[in-house]
Amino acid sequence: MNIIAKWYYRLGAPNWFYPLTGKMLPWIAVIFLALLIPGLYMGLFTAPADYQQGDSFRIMYVHVPAAWMSMFIYFAMAVAAVVALVWRVRMAEIMIISSAPIGASFALIALITGSLWGKPMWGAWWVWDARLTSELILLFIYLGIFALYNAIENKQTAGRAMSILTLVGVVNLPIIHYSVVWWNTLHQAATVSKFDTPSIHIDMLIPLLLMAAAFQFLYLWILLLKMRANLLEQDLHCGWVKKIIWDRRKAHNGGN
């Protein structure tokens, strides 16, 4: 309990969060690259080509992890929204607003790669497939959260409004997803979705998991960068930011 309380207060304190994450950032970047490079290499070269789809299926190694991330980030935001609303932790709000554009970007990547993948498969850039449609709706929900936050001048209010909207979204997302799947089976000849990978070969699975892990670290990396930037921006006139600037300046002058 004590340890949790201690961490809770420390993570809530920007003057502690900022230098700690500053030390973590390069390591996270290294881990990201260490996962990305073998993942990409295996995915693009050593994994066998699909017997039906040939080499074009290799875009899956970007598409699937990006789609996973777009959902994972939303659920992470929803958890942060509960923390922000119940315990009024400002850092949780900063985490949400820093995550929203990243989640939206992953959703966009999933949509673009899905569309690129769809062209050779379906002969069309866009097909109203259940997963692509859900992903598109998710993108709009991300954009809504982002737009709401930016529309509200008072950032304290904006943070709470955004947390409420995030939670409303997490309740609705499963309903939306299942209704879209249902709609899709109703309106289209029920072909098996091209993105389904029911029994995946182990040589395909390993690069996929590597890429998924790499994307997790990519998210963490960008998230921390964005959180630090948002913190600096919001606390521009606070003591701890002034101290950082002052220390930097001193170090810089000393270096000369």
Partner: peptide, 8 residues
């Protein structure tokens, strides 16, 4: 109390 970045 703050409004935006300005301390009131």
């Amino acid at each position: 109390c703050k409004r935006g970045r300005k301390t009131l």
